[in-house]
Design a binder for these strands. Structure first.
Lengths: 119, 119
DNA sequence: CAAATATTTTAGTTGTAACTAAAATGATTT
DNA sequence: AAATCATTTTAGTTACAACTAAAATATTTG
């Protein structure tokens, strides 16, 4: 397992793309339609990152490129993701997470301060 | 499994800290001594992030705070990390990775361009 | 070949993670 | 209560991931 894998799946956006191409290949356009809050170009760039990490593969047919996940490249992480996606609760969390991380890769850490040392 | 976990382990620096406190608790000072390329404060900040994600716990004794990993919070990811650390090859890669990511959280994507579509 | 369609790439912007240096806080000892 | 030790927090800097809009590239169709 490449550490690039850990990097790749740390992004909610990339996890969502992975999910979309998990079972069956999808065109970039189809993926983009499922993520209307980002531009086509943004989807293409994330697909490039995923492809460079070996987590998706592409196939060209006619005018389209079809992308498909490579679960075998994810090793044990594949099961973790699948478990997350199967969990209905997770779907809600993902939605909130995607909305929150409209820009910026990572969830903000909570601002709640605690002045005294907490043991 | 919280997605904050995936976030936390995406950072080589945090993975290294986790490794140091995996088997036995360590003071912040001891952790810092094992990572001389960053300041004490930087270590403390990353420990805070890990603690907020529930991946480490702290205990205060005398002047020191002892940090310890909480592998149970990592779920299946714990095994992945352990497997990585056990692999000698990984140790070399991690060293290079840490050196390369002196600043900046993630490995640069390779600049190699390919102008034609590659199917 | 021109037009249409699908995708990639470029150039530039923005938010923020990871860091540093120094100040602040907390705990212990004298 | 001052001095010392260990850690946390603050304020500010820097590098870069994720994004947008537009231009470029590739592929098929009329």
């Amino acid at each position: 397992m490449d550490p690039a894998v850990l990097d790749a799946i740390a992004s909610p956006r990339r996890r969502e793309i992975l999910r979309l191409v998990w079972r069956e290949e999808q065109t970039v356009g189809a993926i983009h339609q499922a993520m209307p809050d980002v531009t086509f170009g943004a989807v293409s760039l994330q697909l490039r990152l995923l492809a460079e990490a070996g987590l998706v593969e592409a196939r060209g047919e006619r005018r389209n490129r079809f992308y498909k996940a490579r679960p075998e490249a994810l090793g044990p992480v594949a099961e973790i993701l699948e478990r997350m996606w199967d969990d209905a609760l997770w779907k809600l969390k993902l939605a909130a997470e995607l909305e929150e991380t409209r820009r910026g890769p990572k969830p903000r850490r909570r601002p709640g301060r605690k002045s005294k040392r907490e043991v």
